[in-house]
Amino acid sequence: MSQEAARIVLDDEVLAELHEISSLGSDEVLDDLATARAREVLRDVEVLVTGWGCPELSAEVLAAAPRLRAVVHTAGSVRGHITSECWDRGIAVSSAAAANAVPVAEYTLAMILLTGKDVLGRTPGEGPAAIGNFGRTVGILSASLIGRRVIELLRPHDFDVLLSDPYVTAAEAEALGARSVELDELFARSDVVSVHTPLLPTTRGLVGRALIESMRPAAVLINTARGAILDQDALLDAASAGRVRAVLDVTEPEVLAVDHPLRHCPNVLITPHLAGSRGNECRRLARHAVAELRRWAAGSGFAHPVHREQLERIA
């Protein structure tokens, strides 16, 4: 992982647990796997604990790590470093995506509740009944780890929860606490739509102009997934006209220019990709990784494995 990631995730308590579970030769952090020192270390490694900034585990890297059997990732997506060669070798992979889902879901719940209390302002002409959270319809786009956690957090509140996910049956959605609907119905019926689908070739631009224009007057669009899932031009037109409101923790590009018109829409709140794990929340990621390593060392396998066949559906 990067040196910065190590400073965030690997505190003294975590390092002590890693020493307890495994033969951790040193507390050295490798951020370049092509060096002579890295090759020396990799020669005996059975498990890699990885994090943000991990170099790609290429065929050359794997050739230097003949004993490698597992990778425990202290962050979410493994796409940046797990290669086809890893899967071909049968290396077990674990991700802390479930742990990182927690603060994103908490952020989402907070924004749903706050927008219901009118922090973004109402559409002109709407009466007092438009304010409040009682009986609002919340639409969840994708039953990802985060989407499922959001649905769980919504349970104590008086919301009607809709879910659109082509991989989830009506019975499965009901078991989660939501009602399964098609994508167009989700946008047309929801007071709030929260986007939790991963960015894949099939989801780039998924939330297009037609869906945005179909939203209820003063409905709220929340995006904590990836900016490229939305048609930002269509969102700008709808927000500028006062038809919809939006909370964007992610944009395309990731940092909008200071003069981008979305920044100047009073009914659009943009936060700097802060919904994920930050500060002390990163300790949850580290503890998740330690728990996974402890299970693997005991021969129990990972509780949160990532499998090759999941890649077409996950971030």
Results as ranks from 00 to 15, higher is better:
C265E: 13
P201V: 05
G227N: 13
A34I: 05
L57P: 11
G51C: 02
V102N: 06
A298Y: 11
S22W: 06
E28Q: 09
D237Y: 06
I314M: 05
V290C: 12
L311F: 10
V258C: 01
A99P: 04
L114T: 15
F302A: 14
D31H: 10
G205A: 03
A257G: 12
P128T: 07
P305I: 05
S26K: 05
G132S: 14
L48E: 03
V220S: 02
D31R: 02
S95V: 04
G279H: 05
A96R: 03
G127R: 14
G90L: 09
D118T: 15
L15D: 03
A98I: 05
I151L: 03
E4S: 13
I91P: 05
A129V: 12
F134D: 15
T74I: 06
A70D: 09
E309D: 15
L113G: 09
H307S: 10
A63P: 12
L33K: 01
V244M: 09
A97L: 06
G116C: 14
G205E: 00
A130C: 13
V181H: 04
A289C: 15
R7A: 14
M111R: 13
I212Q: 00
G205H: 01
R204G: 02
L183E: 00
L120F: 13
L109S: 11
V258P: 01
S240F: 09
V72H: 07
G147Q: 03
D32T: 05
F187D: 04
P253H: 00
A234F: 13
V255M: 10
S180Y: 08
G177V: 02
H81I: 03
V192E: 06
R148N: 13
R122P: 08
A16H: 00
S94H: 06
I146L: 09
L113F: 14
G53S: 06
L248M: 02
L248E: 00
L200R: 00
I82K: 03
L30I: 06
L262E: 11
G76R: 01
V102C: 02
